[in-house]
């Protein structure tokens, strides 16, 4: 089996060598440039072509992990890593991947990277790893990774694909962290809980915890906030849907070109 497969592979690369050399020559000229065109690859997915609010890719994990900011941040970094390097790897191999099995090849590339992230997180940040549980593994089926491989990396040069991966990872991370901030601030009154720089923003201060805005009725700078209580709705998973819906609403009201006509 194996020799046949390798000769077949060698043949297919031989057939394509002509194409490949042209390609690599062109690549050498364009390698590592960072001009206007490349900058768009990073900035466009942040707002106007955001993976979550516009392309509707990768929503699953965006909703499940965002009740706190810190896990959202870790997730954003993990996904950016996976999108960037899977785009790079796929783009490097795009001329030798047979069309019929390309989905499986892409899945193996992604699964390998996700396994790396999973093992790294297990060592570096075990509490967050526990908190994210199956959602780390689910980066594999996060549509944003495969979506970008299919839509961009299979048809573009490695450096551009790498930048596109980073851009989309960041666009995804931006929404994730924004949702996390809203949910944690209004749901728990804190920010970055569970990390080294946990901040307590608003809530009733006691001896053990000190909040920036103290809402105990008797004392503190924010004593007029005595009526304030944390909104438990924000901790529920459904709140993520509402927060993202509001983001979509704001974004499409601001940029009416994005409105869904159908």
């Amino acid at each position: 089996m194996v020799p046949i497969a390798t000769t077949a592979m060698a043949e297919s690369t031989e057939v394509k060598t002509g194409v490949l050399t042209e390609d690599t020559a062109a690549e050498k000229e364009a390698t590592f440039e960072f001009g206007k065109k490349e900058k768009i690859l990073i900035t466009d997915p942040l707002l106007d072509n955001n993976p979550i609010t516009i392309q509707v890719l990768g929503v699953c994990s965006a909703l499940a992990v965002t009740s706190l900011v810190y896990p959202s941040l870790v997730m954003a970094v993990a996904v950016t890593f996976v999108t960037a390097f899977s785009s790079l790897a796929t783009s490097l191999m795009r001329n030798i991947i047979p069309k019929a099995v390309r989905l499986i090849v892409q899945l193996v590339i992604i699964a390998t990277l996700v396994t790396l992230v999973n093992e790294a997180l297990k060592v570096l940040a075990f509490p967050v790893y526990k908190q994210l549980s199956v959602y780390i593994g689910l980066i594999i089926t996060n549509c944003i990774v495969m979506g970008r491989l299919e839509a961009f990396a299979m048809a573009n040069k490695p450096w551009r694909s790498f930048l596109d991966g980073i851009g989309n990872g960041l666009g995804y991370g931006l929404i994730l962290v924004a949702v996390g901030v809203v949910r944690e601030l209004f749901g728990k009154g804190s920010l970055f809980a569970g990390s080294g720089i946990a901040l307590n923003i608003i809530g009733p201060s006691s001896d053990s915890t000190k909040y920036l805005i103290n809402t105990t009725a008797e004392s503190g700078i924010g004593s007029f906030f005595g009526w304030y209580a944390n909104n438990n709705l924000m901790v529920l998973p459904a709140a993520a849907m509402f927060v993202i819906a509001v983001f979509i609403w704001l974004q499409r009201s601001y940029n009416t070109k994005l409105v869904d006509i159908s």
Binding site: A245, W249, Q251, R252, S253, V259
Partner: peptide, 23 residues
């Protein structure tokens, strides 16, 4: 429906409400 919420925005809101119902 407000134009900016049409389609995707409403789908998110409805799913959120369904999530609360299932709670």
């Amino acid at each position: 429906v407000p134009p900016a919420l049409r389609g995707l925005g409403m789908a998110f809101l409805i799913t959120g409400l369904m999530g609360i119902a299932f709670l």
